[in-house]
Write a protein that binds this DNA or RNA. Structure first.
Lengths: 340, 340
DNA sequence: CTGTTAGCGCCTTCAA
DNA sequence: TTGAAGGCGCTAACAG
């Protein structure tokens, strides 16, 4: 039974005091080079790993950032976590993920409390609206950064633009000659969807294109709903030549529906998504979409969290990254078939 | 600046000793009902949350399970984590995820060391082969369970069958009348791929079907390779009427390729995947695939971990769950076009 | 039934 | 340049 190596073990083995070992390991205080080398060597040989609990209890920095999420399965979340994880690693920090249900209030407070007793700071990634979730953090007891949160809050938040990305995507379609463009909305609860719709509508107006009710279909960010909404759109007397879906998942559903109707993409129907999840680049044809810079969002969140730690309280900044149109192969000029 | 509430705070506020509070909160020792209620009330009012570091340092159970993964982006991983997370919650435990790179040896030891100082036990989910990763855990210093690991190890492992699932899928195709069936392999490194291929080949032999080299194409579990491999298969002088891909991602690529060639699924080409990731149910047509019970795997891992904790050392069990064919709409009887 | 106390592993003065 | 000692929040053993 190999019990974990403690600082004391290293000290004993190296024939010095614990304080000396601590100094060496933390690069603090002046220790003679000889002692230094010996301690380092012993620590390595013994496979010493600092006990985080002890360090945290003592009140020092643990070098661990916490991340609280409520949906492990979403690729959007996964990308943000990946970005945060890489950024943390780059500055010598670890990232710890904690899952929690959106529903139970007590549960969330417990999770936040737990994480904050372990970590130097916490990143909160919540999908949809869960305002009271946030309320618990607002007492500036602990460095926290909110990711993709659109509500009112004094805390620091990071997100990315939705409006201009949607506008850009719609204009891309307009420049391609499309005049009837369908739109598949997101889930009504989320804050991201409406902004995307607004960008779409404004671009339409700017180009004098029709944006009637019949061209706007309710989706819920899911693939099956994207499929169904597209079928509705294609059943219209004057069917659209392009469809803009409020997220990639819906766009994948739209692609399925188009192929099902024997339509070629992009010849017969152009399709644009939103998010640029990894799958968007590998579907066939590759999806034209608006890149939400999730990796950057994660990395920025880590940076802001570090600033919040050093700066002390909640800085209350609101950072919005730019999203960007990525043109791939699911969009093209209006085909002859439909121009008549 | 609201500093966290400690046990002492609660004790002071309730007018009792810390030991009493501790007893109440842990349901240990006998405390009078009146005191009990008062303590509970004060704790709730103050929003007391136990400091995990202190509890862990003291040597007690923390109620947190660790999970070490090397790929946050894979849906396979996400499902396992989801299963483990739900199972943990059901027994009142939390799950903490720690990411680590597969490459750096020192790094991994550090992560394991860190996690083990915080958690009651650890779940290791490694994709591909990383044998020396495992070696570090083998000293039974700490309850650990390996997920989806196929190598030799004295540690407890949980996984799911690959061979019989592949056999079943192939037989499904054979019963549908397919005689020329293509296969897209997985990445050569992984241990899961070869077993799936073996199941495929044995089923072929059992039915007296051809399994020549030309029908077996090298994939790497990715969608683009699945696409390319399928194009090769479709270019064969005598093209297959069905394709079995070693994982769903490859199967999605195969579906893309088929549609690209103007083939209808399943009328002109049947396609089977492996894994049953969530996307498999929502692509169009819905993918027939072999369900690897990831949620169950995660849940079982949690259960075994608990047993390992209670039982003490590494029990060294090897649990293999059954995989199961899920017939959806991407497979059907051989079409007239190809029967001639 | 309830209070006092030691000590988990570490870091940080302070003293030598 | 190094050693000794205290205390972070908590639990468990022991007194009262």
């Amino acid at each position: 039974m190999n019990s974990p190596i403690t600082l004391t073990d290293v000290a004993r083995q190296a024939g010095v005091s614990v304080a000396t070992v601590s100094s060496v390991l933390n690069n603090t205080g002046r220790v003679s080079e000889g002692t230094r080398q010996r301690v380092l060597e012993v620590a390595r040989d013994l496979g010493y790993v600092a006990n985080l609990s002890a360090r945290s209890l003592k009140g020092g920095r643990t070098g661990v950032l916490g991340m609280v999420v409520n949906d492990l399965a979403s690729p959007v979340f996964a990308e943000i976590a990946r970005g945060a994880s890489m950024a943390a690693r780059n500055v010598g920090l670890d990232l710890m993920l904690y899952t929690t249900s959106v529903t139970a209030q007590r549960e969330r407070e417990r999770v936040i409390g737990t994480v904050s007793s372990l970590c130097d700071g916490v990143l909160i990634v919540v999908s949809g609206d869960s305002d009271d979730y946030i309320r618990a953090l607002e007492q500036p007891r602990f460095p926290a950064v909110l990711v993709n949160y659109l509500g009112e809050t004094p805390l620091t938040t990071v997100g990315a633009d939705n409006y201009w990305g949607a506008r850009q995507a719609t204009e891309h379609l307009a420049h391609l000659g499309h005049r009837r463009i369908g739109f598949i909305t997101g889930a009504s609860g989320s804050g991201q969807g409406p902004e995307r719709l607004r960008g779409f509508l404004d671009a339409l107006a700017a180009h004098g294109l029709p944006g009637g009710e019949d061209l706007i279909r309710t989706g819920d960010f899911s693939r099956p709903r994207g499929f169904a909404a597209t079928c509705e759109l294609l059943a219209l007397p004057e069917r659209p030549t392009a469809i803009f879906a409020a997220n990639d998942e819906s766009a994948f559903g739209a692609m399925d529906a188009a192929k099902d109707h024997g339509l070629r993409i992009p010849n017969d129907l152009s399709i644009v998504g939103f998010d640029d999840v990894p799958a968007a680049a590998v579907v066939h044809p590759a999806l034209t979409t608006v890149r939400h810079p999730f990796l950057d969002i994660g990395a920025t969140a880590v940076r802001l969290l570090q600033e919040a730690q050093q700066g002390g309280g909640a800085s209350g900044r609101r950072v919005e990254l730019m999203s960007e149109l990525v043109v791939r192969h699911s969009t093209g000029p209006v085909g002859q078939e439909h121009q008549a």
